[in-house]
Amino acid sequence: MSLLEISLRSLAALAAVLVLPLVAGQAEHKVMAHMQGRLGPMYAGGFHGWAQLVADGVKFVQKEDITPAAADRSVFRLAPAVALIPYVIAIALLPIHPGLAAAEVPGSVLLVLAVIGVGVLGTLMAGWASANKYALVGGMRSAAQLLAYELPLVLSVASVAMAAGTLSLAGVVEAWTPWWLVWQLPGAIVFLIAATAELQRVPFDAPIADSEVVMGPWTEYTGLRFAFFMLAEYAGMVVMGLLFGILWLGGWQGPFAEQLGWLWTLLKGALIVLLIIWIRVSWPRMREDQLQRLAWTVLVPLALAQLALTAIGVVVTT
């Protein structure tokens, strides 16, 4: 692989991280507004407020970059990057078309899970380094939540990897059959719930709930650093949506997969992102103890049961 190709692939991944979250954010603005019977942003850019997020970005750039006097400066400044970079790496690993991913590695399923796990550190660093009690409480909440939901997330993905008999995302897509929609359904539900919790989105947004802990770990952030956290959240939504589409909905599989594979992958990912937005509009926030109970008493046993079911299926069919 030449240097030019490497830089082209890196640039493509970076562009995906910069563009897809904006599309998801705009979709959230409009979908949420219509679900709640209102209009949403309508003026910026003319047609249905399409430039609202661009305007938000310009606003973020103009804001003063403040580091609180009592904060741990280096950790505070580093935290947004630690939160965002894992998702850049994760998006680079997702195969969107037969034989096409920005970075092809053998164990990509594990690598995606590993880098998503590292993203937690950014939130923790932000929560601790801000020297703010709301940030600290939010940081602790998010740490407890992310630790609890990491396990069902990994277990449900492990089930798919076991069913496909490979640790490569592209291999999983190739092994996928429509029959999986039934066979892997419990694991898919577990993954969707755990992914929503991992992204700290409603109804799992207790760590950053503005009516409880101001903005949690992000309380002290302004300007571009705050925008980075928001970007990380939406990039995470895109990554989780695409990952769901690739693992459970067969990625590029569909009519004319040779030509239109990328379209199917993106459509399936977009469907899941819409679902995550829909969940946000539909459910009220869960309390801390309810969150923990859901993770440990419902999702983990369900994921383990799915793992056993997958094992039986694999043994019977091979």
Binding site: D72, A114, V118, V120, L121, W128, L147
Partner: peptide, 30 residues
């Protein structure tokens, strides 16, 4: 590769996060 990935997944993603949470719960001032 597999050992490296499991190292990141288990140690960085879970064990160190646990250590940091324990520090926050006890006393870890700036």
């Amino acid at each position: 590769e597999l050992v490296a990935l499991v190292q990141v997944l288990v140690y960085v993603g879970a064990v160190v996060v646990l250590v940091i949470v324990a520090l926050m719960l006890t006393r870890a001032p700036i």
